[in-house]
Computed example of a mutant assay.
Amino acid sequence: MRYNSLNTFKMQGKSSVSKGPVGLILIEDDVEIDSTIRHHLECGFAQIIVFSAPRHTIDPALEAKVIRVDHDMLADNALTDVVNTVIDMAPKVWLYYCYNTEYLFFPFSEHRTVGEMVAFSTEERRFSILTYVVDLYAGNLDENPNAVSIQDAYLDKSGYYSLARMDSQNNALDRQLDFFGGLRWRFEEHIPKPRRRIDRIALFRAQDGLRLNEDHTFNEPEYNTYSCPWHHNLTVAICSFRTAKALKRNPGSTFEIQSFHWHNSAPFSWHSQQLLDLGLMEPGQWF
């Protein structure tokens, strides 16, 4: 199924988001589109919806398994336009969003589905799941000048930290933290300050009036918290080449970066256990 605009999808596609969890994949360029879709199909989403400008090509075998909506993800406000439109279409449905070259991992994801995970979260009366965006980067930039390599991917095994999130009166917000690390921390001089955080609420249950902001927070404060008041909740990770791509694409940084390697680089195993061992996600009470 393919819709020729976001507005057409809004008017005609409500039945496709009636059952969750629904994965929204936002295509910004031609890099690793197929591997991104394939990975998320294997996660167990009830439906995958791909938002992409018509110029981008998807393997026909994969395109047959998803819904495609023609929408330019490089346009102004593209993120919030897409996610908030789907929120309005799918009240009480669990939603997830990511970009191409981003890959969702969650505790025990090799043998459990994302549907099982959000069902557990719902039982805990928890309707949002904190997501750490873990930077991936190619080990050899001479061979992979766009910094993307599925076969030769690395991540930082340390260097992550959090700070209290403050309100407009400089008071710490309840159970809200700003998380930092990875390439956005190591190369922060090339990253605008509002974009240095690595936290995102990428998995959440839609509700009436909920709105995603451009900084990946929501207008409902409880959705922005890292856990509920009574115990720790599970968290997930999105392993992402997106920052590495941007740093090598940007003329202001590409010639200053010959390698992303440092003493805390480690080969990425493409397995949830590595992320659990590094503390980059937690199972909470889900065993």
Rank of each mutant, 00 (worst) to 15 (best):
L275A: 06
L212P: 03
I33T: 08
N170R: 11
S240D: 01
V69W: 12
W185Y: 15
P60K: 12
E143S: 09
N171R: 14
M89H: 10
D199P: 00
T101R: 12
E220Y: 14
L24S: 03
Q274N: 11
M117C: 08
R205I: 02
R200G: 00
G209Y: 14
R2N: 07
P107G: 09
Q169I: 01
W94Y: 14
H216F: 15
Y154R: 06
E28A: 03
W94C: 07
R196Q: 13
I191Q: 07
G209K: 14
G44T: 04
P251I: 09
D199M: 00
I87G: 06
I129G: 02
D76T: 09
D142F: 05
L212T: 09
D81K: 15
N233H: 12
R112L: 00
I87T: 09
K10L: 12
V93I: 15
N77F: 08
K193M: 07
E188D: 09
V82E: 03
D215H: 13
F106H: 13
V86Y: 10
N219R: 04
R125M: 01
R211P: 00
A246H: 04
M89D: 13
L183V: 04
R38F: 12
H271C: 06
V17C: 08
S227F: 06
I58R: 11
Y223H: 03
A237T: 14
Q176Y: 06
P54G: 06
C239V: 15
L130C: 07
S272W: 15
R200W: 00
Y97L: 06
I58W: 11
I49K: 04
A172E: 11
R125T: 04
K248C: 08
P192D: 12
I25R: 06
L24V: 01
I33R: 08
P221N: 13
S128Q: 00
T85I: 05
F51H: 06
R184D: 04
L276W: 09
D167L: 02
I33V: 14
W262Y: 08
N4P: 00
K10R: 13
V114S: 08
C228Y: 04
V236T: 15
Y99K: 13
A237G: 10
P145K: 10
S109N: 09
T243I: 06
N77P: 02
F106W: 10
Q176L: 01
Y97E: 11
